[in-house]
Design a protein around this nucleic acid. Structure first.
Lengths: 235, 235
DNA sequence: CTGTGTAAAAATATCGATAATATAAAAAAA
DNA sequence: TTTTTTTATATTATCGATATTTTTACACAG
């Protein structure tokens, strides 16, 4: 066994080739390296990611289930398109599901949940201070904070559907982060959600969440409109 | 070419082997032929459905994306478990999403939508009269009626998520149909939804939908409790 | 009774052959 | 000359057989 690093763990914490290619393609779609609407030719990807066709196809099928990729019978796979309309749709759905989950989480959360939530917020705060330094780190902490908020929600279907939308939304948030997010204080938005939640004030917490999602959407749509003038992203 | 019926269209309207095995496994899961929680060994399925491993794995990955099948790294696939708790969860999520979709549909629906809705209800009514005769036919018409109700909803994500839950719910409805549905008049429930919808009475339509889903749930849970006494379905 | 090693079973990945589809080029008709 | 239709070629997806890796079960020694 000489080349064990090519065989085991192609990317961090992925045990199988399906898993690792799934992760890579997914983050390439989220990060915009694979353009929305573009065809995903098996042979090309085979070359790019250096794996066989079967695990690739499995990964693509999995991504299709989550809406990152579209499948057409005998026409192959392509990257799901993005559009301002889709973003608006996604955002309003997120408001509905995140608020409902937060409501349930506040109702059911105990001391343990509160403690974890405060801890997650603290870690996010730390990462926010070194914002420019490590974007991936901040992303991770942001995800964890928002998950901690909803951790006490007992409905696994609600959490599951929310997760799908949240992940989809990342494609757009990636665009928003590129913009200057004019006059926006994400840090403060997070703190407001946290405080309302700890105060068990469902109404205020939901309102703060709604605004948080809305601001992100508006920020993205602005950039989107700019981008689309030059190169139409959605096909 | 002698055996073209083995190559093309193994089951009705499926163009590829992936599609056809996907359909068959899915309906076997919904119909309960593949027991909840049981392992889906590739080799066994290969024998049962007479196809190769690659298309099978692709079909299973697709089913995993929709929650019919669970995947564990290097441990293979298994049928997603069912439980009364899962049914309750599923039902309350359905109430939320179906009502929201119905609200939007009522707001946006025009004459065309109304006409199609009335037509779908009529077809369902016809199928209901010959209830015992063709259950698959009734199922189809029922799906179509509920889809027609929401057809004018402009949010494709809402419809998509609703669809996932609706399909999941079929596993439980299959159980409910087996029971006598004591004292239930599904026909009347449908008519009430239709009438409130045509009257553009959002509140009444949502209430009727909520009751419709709730009754189905209660009906299933009763049978469920009976079944579980003898053989624990959920593992 | 616990831990380690080995054998069997099962899942995963790759490869090569086959079938389907799209693209292009060429010919015929308008 | 342009447009349409047909045919041939090239590209691409699909599929099953085989090889590799991993897990699990079981036996045996400590």
């Amino acid at each position: 066994m000489s080349n064990d690093n090519s065989k085991r763990r192609l990317t961090t914490n992925a045990r199988t080739l399906v898993e690792s290619s799934y992760n890579r393609i997914r983050s390439d779609i989220i990060g915009g390296k694979l353009a929305p609407g573009s065809k995903l030719r098996i042979d090309e990807l085979r070359g790019d990611y250096k794996i066989g066709a079967s695990p690739l196809r499995e990964a693509l099928n999995r991504l299709a289930g989550e809406g990152f990729v579209t499948v057409e019978e005998q026409r192959g796979f392509s990257v799901a398109p993005v559009s301002p309309d889709d973003l608006r749709d996604l955002s309003s759905m997120r408001v509905m599901l995140e608020c409902e989950a937060l409501r349930e989480s506040i109702r059911n959360g105990g001391d343990e949940w509160e403690a974890n939530l405060v801890a997650a917020h603290h870690r996010l705060q730390k990462a926010e201070q070194s914002f420019g330094k490590d974007l991936a780190e901040w992303e991770q902490r942001n995800d964890e904070f928002h998950e901690a908020l909803l951790a006490a929600c007992p409905s696994s279907w609600l959490l599951r559907l929310r997760h799908v939308l949240y992940e989809q939304h990342k494609r757009y948030r990636f665009i928003a982060i590129l913009s200057q997010q004019a006059g926006r204080d994400v840090h403060r938005e997070h703190r407001e959600i946290l405080e309302a939640t700890l105060a068990r004030d469902v109404k205020a917490a939901c309102k703060a969440t709604e605004l948080h999602i809305q601001y992100t959407m508006e920020s993205s749509i602005r950039v989107f409109a700019e981008l689309e003038k030059d190169t139409p992203i959605a096909v």
